[in-house]
Each structure stands twice: as C-alpha cells, then as structure tokens.
Simulated assay, not measured.
Amino acid sequence: MKLDIFAQPTGTGAEELVPSRYALRVGEIDVLVVSDGVLPLPTETLATNADPAVRAAWLEDMFLPPEAFDWPLNVLVVRSGDQTILVDAGLGGQFPGFPRAGQFPHRLEAAGIDLGSVTDVVITHMHMDHVGGLLVDAVKSRLRPDLRVHVCATEVDFWATPDFSHTAMPSPVPPVLRKTAQQFVEAYRDRIQTFEQDFDVAPGVTVSRTGGHTPGHSVVRLASGGERLTFAGDAIFPVGFDHPDWFNGFEHDPEESVRVRVRLLNEAAATGELLVATHLPFPSVGRVAVDGDAFRWVAGFWDF
C-alpha cells in the first residue's frame, strides 16, 4: 500500500534493480518493511536435529541449494502517533564476510526516512544481525541524543556472559556474536531502557518477551483498528512452517524455541493477523494456516 506518510525517495543514489522496501498500514499504524540484504549461511543450521537426508529433501522440494543459501534480513520502521520506531537494525557493514548485508541505512535514506527522526528502537534480541547496524558510525552519528532503545532485561543480562552450549553455529560465529552484543551495550548504555515481559512502546505497539531463540528474545505486536501484525524476529524461519520441531543452530534453547514457534504460529492462524519475521523472504508479509500437524505460509498479495 502506498502511504504518503513515508516520504518519496530523494533521488540521490542509483536505483536498485529489485525493491527493497514495502509499505502497509495496520489500522492507523504505518509500517515499512526494509530489506537489510541477505546473509549466506550453511543449510545444516536450519535443522540441527533432523535427519540429513530429510533436510536435503526439504531443501530440494523448496528449490534451495543443498549446502548454503541466503537468509533474508528484514527490519521494520513503524510510525504510531508522533513516534517513529525502528525494529532491529540489521547487520551493519563491519563484517567483510557478509558484503550483501548491512543495507538498511542507505535504503532508509532512499525511502526519505531520516535516522534523526527515529524516536525509539526495539531490539528483538542481541544477535549481530539485529544490533550490528547500530554500531555503524554513519548511523550512530545521526541518531538523536534522546533516542530510547528498548531491550528485554533478560537479554542484556544474558550477553554479559552468554552460554552457547546448546547452539550449533559455525565455529567462528559465537565470539563475534559475543563481541558485537557487548559493543552494542557499551555504545547505547545510557539510552537502553529495559523491560521485563511486556512493554507498550507507542499506541498499539507492544514488545513482548518470548525467550527461546535467546533468553530475552522478544516479538513486536501491532494492533490498531481491529487489525494486527506480529513481527516475530527469529522465532520463525522458513522451514518452521513445515517442520516447527526442527531446531535452528542459532537457538540458545532449542526445545523452548519449538514451544514458542508453535504457540506463535497457532496464534497467527487463529487470529488471521499478518506475520513478518526477520528471515522470511522479503517482504515477509503473509498469514499462517494450520496444515495437519504443521503449518502453511500464505504470502500476502503485494498491493502497489
């Protein structure tokens, strides 16, 4: 849906070959899904407790490569009342191994959104592909001094001494995750506002702790005018509809992650609300249907 509240591109910079932002409205709340790019990762991280042959068959059925594929990275810009809220901040540009990620700053600029207009940032969890964008100098320098950064207190506490014993990540990743999370806390310590379980960020915008993926992992729920949308962060991956019981290698508590995933998918199916998640294919706007013991993703029709 074309929304006038999101300014038109300024005309600076080259046009991209594919769209990188998608606008919609949830009641009186304006939402912009922005692609931060893609993150190539090994396919075994999608299902660490699955039979490799079954996992390979799922990948083949989905026309996905067997060894590695590109995880989408989606962030949100939400406008409710007089507040502009950034939900997650992507990877940032400080990781040379991932040159196609870290795109959100210039894509926000291309959409005519000034980082200085952002009043609040909500962090679903402190993995580097969610907080790294806030560590980019060109981003930090443009954020307002009274910016409020909302993170679950459990999440902040966890990353002081993180436990990776139940994860199955590529070996170079954990130390980078730890370092990036700690850099984020140090950089934004004076602006971080923690919450315990639920917090109303703005009218119709609530962040709620789910745990699972990380101890303080949270989702953002939008509700206005009888319409609803949930940004599920990393609670749901593409394979999670067909196989909600498969563990993701980045989950710090895989069994709890399954419970969270099933609960969120059942809620979405029951309410018919829109669902967006970090790693679903851009623009990641759709609904969920129950399909026997599993679920079915129903992609929304683009309205443009």
Rank of each mutant, 00 (worst) to 15 (best):
G133C: 12
L135S: 09
L135Y: 09
V136Q: 12
D137I: 03
D137S: 11
A138S: 15
V139I: 02
S141D: 13
S141T: 15
R142T: 08
R144F: 12
P145M: 12
D146L: 02
L147H: 02
H150Y: 14
V151F: 07
V151H: 08
C152V: 06
A153H: 11
A153K: 07
T154M: 04
E155F: 00
V156D: 14
P162N: 08
D163Y: 00
D163Q: 06
D163R: 01
S165M: 11
S165W: 07
H166Q: 14
H166G: 13
T167C: 03
T167E: 13
M169H: 11
S171C: 09
V173D: 11
P174H: 09
P175R: 02
L177V: 05
K179D: 10
T180N: 06
T180L: 03
A181I: 00
A181P: 00
A181E: 14
A181C: 05
Q182M: 06
F184H: 03
A187V: 00
A187Y: 01
A187Q: 03
Y188L: 00
D190K: 13
I192D: 03
I192M: 06
I192H: 01
T194C: 11
F195C: 02
E196F: 00
E196P: 01
E196V: 00
Q197N: 10
Q197V: 03
D198M: 15
F199G: 03
F199M: 05
D200M: 09
D200R: 08
V201I: 13
V201E: 14
V201R: 04
A202Y: 02
A202R: 10
G204T: 04
V205L: 13
T206I: 10
T206M: 06
S208N: 13
R209Y: 10
R209W: 07
R209A: 06
T210M: 13
G211E: 04
G211I: 01
G211C: 01
H213M: 05
T214G: 03
T214D: 10
P215F: 11
P215R: 08
P215W: 10
G216Q: 12
G216T: 01
H217W: 05
H217N: 11
H217Q: 11
S218G: 04
S218N: 10
V219H: 08
V219S: 12
V220L: 15
R221G: 07
R221F: 08
L222I: 05
A223P: 02
A223F: 12
A223Y: 14
G226K: 04
G226S: 02
G226W: 10
R228D: 13
L229P: 01
L229Y: 05
T230G: 01
T230N: 11
F231R: 07
F231P: 02
A232F: 06
A232E: 07
A232D: 09
G233C: 02
D234F: 09
I236H: 12
I236Y: 15
I236C: 07
F237C: 06
F237W: 08
P238H: 07
V239W: 11
G240Q: 10
H243A: 14
H243F: 12
P244E: 15
D245T: 14
W246K: 08
W246P: 01
W246A: 08
F247D: 15
F247M: 12
